[in-house]
Design a protein around this nucleic acid. Structure first.
Lengths: 241, 241
DNA sequence: GCGAGTTTGTTCTCGTGGTCACAAACTCCG
DNA sequence: CGGAGTTTGTGACCACGAGAACAAACTCGC
């Protein structure tokens, strides 16, 4: 998924549990965190792995294994303390403090992202909106003034930004990414339908709407094909050559 | 990733190549298709696996293996014909004809999705926009009139819709999904930060912006921790106990 | 204080996916 | 027509992840 090519030396052994969390587990930790937050809002103080797993939509064994990578934060025979586990996961992910984020490309999608409450509510603070097109500049979106793209480096340096969001057309995406990397950003969330080329040490995650739809279309085609076959030759079960 | 729980009988052997394409490959086919389209626009008629692989941002061996699942559409010593391969991939995914799509929840994100050109350009046709809130209804977004959520079943039946997009707040997502399934939709693209519960045979793909950011934050934290360690105890390489 | 019941943490096994390396097959040139 | 060069397709191997099953550890009732 991510293009992590950081050459980790890793000479000594990994004795402490805060190392080497599998990528698949990292991708699920935010889901657990959200489920825990939801439980906390309903004033539920403690929960079992089974309850949390169903709330997160995963297998309970997988959940326990995932949590075991960050340490033993549960109590056998009892379950997990919601607040305590929430904090531990948040600490592991690194969202106990806020991360400054900039968004480049304030079109339809960029505006939607700027207004998205899920960003600010979960450890992220949008510090600047940038757009290269003059008509957008100076306008206020989600309480922030849209600034010219040329201000990128200055803002990144001033606000210590390390995460950038790209929501520009595909043709401009690589240029924006290059500028971000040059400015010192080391994590990019890319919504543009383009393959980004970044140096080692920079993480890129891609969110591609049309790809997701095409994956659904593939499965949908197969379902249709299977249904057709079912009509064609009746039952396809029990045929053992 | 996807929650496919369709019980495929699959009694007979898989002799034809149009079966059993790995999920990881399916997820990459749209990327290849886009890269091929980009090549075709530059009037490039033929390409090698190496060229296509770099355009798609993957390993060339992986690309060849992926393509081999759909058949032998290349020529050894020569490469792949761009148009021919494009068609074969599009046919395999099932985007040679258009898929009707409905979008439920016309907030900021829903409007952005409705205006997103990548949908219509690649085998998808937005046939209706729905919203439960009265103030939105009747308004025109991206050339389509926003209709009341209650019309869902009627539209789905009339237009033979099998793919639905959910861009409503998390609290309403499950209700919308239930209504979609009841109306006959069997593939859902969910942008709401919620876990959806759907019956077997229904595919759900989730796009979650805040989760993506949290994954980036995790790696970012690790980078910072590694850098700190590097400062703390100097070099950590070459320590062989 | 102790046994029954419950729930976590971990080990083992299996399937999936990624990478390497090489044989097969095609083109080009002499 | 044949050999050198090139590129695909695939078999083998390794690593990662998912799931089941079980031991360890905690609570509760008597």
């Amino acid at each position: 998924m991510t293009a992590r090519s950081t050459n980790t030396g890793e000479g000594s052994g990994a004795q402490d549990p805060h190392r080497d969390i599998p990528e698949a587990t990292v991708a699920r930790l935010p889901v657990y965190l959200r489920a825990l937050t939801s439980l906390a809002e309903r004033n539920i103080a403690s929960c079992s792995s089974e309850e949390l797993a169903t709330a997160a939509g995963v297998n309970s064994a997988k959940l326990r294994k995932d949590l075991s990578y960050l340490g033993s934060y549960g109590t056998r025979g009892v379950g997990y303390d919601v607040d305590y586990l929430s904090y531990q996961i948040a600490r592991e992910i690194g969202v106990t403090h806020d991360w400054p984020v900039i968004i480049v490309g304030i079109g339809n999608l960029g505006q939607a992202l700027a207004n998205f409450s899920g960003f600010s509510s979960r450890g992220f603070r949008t510090v600047a909106l940038l757009d290269a097109a003059a008509p957008m500049q100076g306008r206020k979106v989600a309480g922030l003034e849209v600034r010219p793209f040329a201000d990128l480096a200055e803002i990144v340096a001033a606000e210590q930004v390390s995460i950038g969001v790209i929501s520009v057309p595909a043709t401009a995406a690589q240029d924006v990414a290059d500028a971000m990397v040059a400015a010192g950003i080391s994590s990019i969330l890319n919504f543009a339908p383009a393959v980004l080329n970044v140096p080692p040490g920079v993480d890129v995650r891609k969110v591609d709407l049309s790809i997701e739809l095409q994956i659904l279309a593939y499965h949908e085609s197969r379902k249709a094909a299977e249904a057709d076959e079912g009509v064609d030759n009746g039952s396809e079960e029990g045929i053992t050559a």
